[in-house]
Nucleic acid binder design. Structure first.
Length: 588
RNA sequence: CGGGGCGUAGCGCAGCCUGGUAGCGCACCUGCCUUGGGCGCAGGGGGUCGUAGGUUCAAAUCCUAUCGCCCCGACCA
């Protein structure tokens, strides 16, 4: 039996000054974790117990679809060079040398190791499909660790990798993970959303993120309350209300208007008596391309046009230019291309590349919200002048139309048209179809049924163990502490004799705890010789979902069962005490 | 990497401006007392003031450098 008096549960009355978010404050105060250095935390008894429960659930569910491995955290440089990530990961990768001077790194994920095994061992299509997973520590030299356990430099991740012979097989592996992730998060008692996500430059077609809404989150998700549409901000789309175009003025050609000192969209729109929706916002960037052979950096101008009242979504933009590094143009670069100061930029009078591959000419990317619009107002590339009657496709030719704008709250859902909301959220899990990214570069191939060599198609799937606990705390806390879903709480019930010097109370409490334990519940007996107030405060703080208070009423054969989340108190018969916790054992 | 803030006892903080023997609350130890929401009384232990250098008769305090931590931004398979 776990007796509080013998355990190390260092609760604090006050949170450390440098804790900002609720989960950080409470996990420290409740004695779950202690900080060792920036982004590095020690998990104490309660924290470790909770993580073990989470990993237990993950393992149980993953074992239904895959096989658990244990892999090195220390990887040789050659492995990461084979995938190209030794270079690509830059400072995010922890690097070190062994005594012989050989380069090693601490794994931030295990694509390389898993693919290495696959490439060496898998020979035939008959061995496929395979799903391999591991639950281990990952290391990332984050530029800025923050928010307690939310963004750290060492953390535990369940990651799995699927190997299939073809895309249809990958679809099956992907779907298995999707369903398994739902089961895991359901069992962990989290309220979460599944959103369509950007697979990034890693080159996958399909990707979903499992997100938990919380103000502490670092990601933005767009969702519809009327239907089940939900997407990562980087991927989200929306329906726009129709906009009335301006009527043509003069002879139909672009018409210069004097707009002295009017540099912002707002200024110009107000000055000309039109809506920003009829204005083109011109943004100028430089894309940096590294030439593979020479290592030289090539610059290419990229101009983005979006509607005056819209914002550019950087991730969509990055995707549109094929993942190249981009940065805003500097003043002299703007001068050179537009021959105009910023504030009066526009697409007319410049020769644009006809397609993305086309050599040296600047690219003109136009947001889809401008496609088909007429008689817009843009900068004239001349100080203090703008142009009326500007129609995309007619007065200038875009290199490409693309979805580039950031969705805003209140815009229409792409599925049902109802207003969208935007929330911050924490990413708990991410599944995506990797494709051939690693199998190709690392030579993971098998023979198919025709004896032909085929490159394996892969998927990868991650779950952040710490983030499950963190999100649960963020989701359920009040001024006194937090409460966890029973499935991931370090204990399910804390039995709390009000006065341990009273032999009757203590004996009754020990008896109750023993019986609950015999019935398979995780019980903590608070046998500390403390005043009841202290014990109640601690019980409220440490995240245990139920409390049994053993007080004077034992003489009548009664104790109190307190539900932490609702503060609901009910008298319970000692004789039938286990009945009150049947709710903790729902049929699975 | 850019901007801002903070390092004084286990935790939370004051003292620094105006240099002169380092303090408060909580926690901890001992005793008494108390026992349904962080109780009371008495006694006690614990600090190279992040580190290094400088100024000064004298530095937690002034100056310089450096390290660490937090926040905002950039970044984030």
């Amino acid at each position: 039996m776990h007796r509080w008096s013998e355990l190390f549960i260092p609760t604090l009355r006050e949170a450390p000054a440098d804790a900002e978010v609720a989960s950080h404050k409470f996990l420290v105060r409740a004695g779950y974790i202690r900080q060792l250095a920036a982004g590095l935390y020690s998990y104490l008894f309660l924290g470790n117990r909770s993580f073990n429960k989470i990993m237990g659930i993950v393992r149980e569910e993953m074992d239904k679809i895959g096989q658990e491995f244990y892999l090195p955290a220390l990887h040789p440089r050659e492995l990461w060079e084979a995938s190209g990530r030794w270079e690509l990961m830059g400072d995010n990768l922890f690097r070190l040398k062994d005594r012989k001077g050989a380069d090693l790194c601490l794994g931030m994920t295990h694509e390389e190791v898993m693919t290495d095994i696959a490439s060496k061992e898998l020979r035939s299509y008959k061995q496929l499909p395979q799903i391999w997973y591991q639950i281990q520590s990952k290391f990332r030299d984050e530029p800025r660790p923050r928010s307690g356990l939310l963004r750290v430099r060492q953390f535990i991740m369940k990651d799995s990798y699927s190997f299939d012979i073809d895309a249809a097989g990958l679809d099956v592996s992907y779907k298995k993970h999707y369903e398994t992730y739902r089961r895991i998060l359901d069992r962990c008692g989290l309220k979460y959303m599944v959103v369509e996500a950007d697979s990034g430059a890693m080159g996958g077609k399909e990707s979903h993120e499992f997100m938990v809404r919380t103000p502490a989150g670092e990601d933005l998700i767009v969702s519809c309350e009327s239907c089940d549409y939900a997407a990562n901000m980087e991927k989200a789309a929306s329906k726009l209300a129709g906009v009335e175009d301006l009527t043509l003025e003069g002879g139909g050609e672009p018409l210069e208007v004097h707009t002295p000192g009017m540099k912002t969209i707002e200024d110009v729109a107000r000055f000309l008596g039109v809506s920003p929706k009829n204005k083109i916002k011109t943004l100028a960037y430089m894309a940096e391309e590294k030439e593979a052979k020479t290592g030289k950096t090539k610059l290419r101008a990229v101009v983005v046009l979006i509607r005056g009242d819209h914002q550019l979504n950087e991730a969509k933009f990055a995707a549109a230019v094929g993942g190249k590094q981009t940065r805003p143009m500097q003043e002299d670069e703007i001068k050179q291309l537009f021959r105009s100061p910023a504030g009066f930029l526009g697409p007319i009078g410049i020769e644009w590349a006809a397609d993305m591959k086309d050599g040296a000419l600047p690219l003109l990317l136009v947001d889809k919200a401008l496609e088909g619009r007429k008689n817009l107002i843009s900068g004239a590339n001349k100080e203090d002048y703008h142009l009326k009657n500007v129609t995309p496709g007619h007065n200038f030719r875009p290199t490409a139309y693309a979805d580039l704008r950031a969705v805003a709250a209140g815009e229409g859902c792409p599925n049902c048209g109802e207003p969208l909301r935007i929330d911050t959220a924490v990413e708990i899990g991410h599944i995506f179809k990797l494709g051939y990214r690693y199998s190709e570069s690392m030579g993971a191939r098998v023979l198919d049924r025709n004896g032909k060599e085929v490159t394996l198609i892969m998927g990868c799937y991650g779950i952040g163990i710490e983030r499950i606990l963190t999100a649960a705390v963020e989701q359920s806390n009040d001024e006194n502490g937090f409460w966890l879903p029973p499935s991931i709480a370090p204990f399910e019930i804390v039995v709390c004799p009000v006065n341990v010097k009273d032999e009757t109370l203590l004996k009754a409490a020990v008896d109750i705890a023993t019986r609950l334990e015999a019935d398979g519940f995780d019980v903590l007996l608070d046998d500390r010789d403390e005043r009841p107030g202290v014990k109640f405060k601690d019980a409220d703080l440490v995240g245990i979902p139920f409390r049994v208070t053993v007080g004077k009423k034992v003489t009548e054969g009664t104790v109190e069962v307190v539900q932490r989340s609702t503060r609901q108190i009910q008298d319970a018969s000692i004789a039938a005490i286990t009945d009150y916790f049947k709710v903790l054992r729902p049929a699975r």
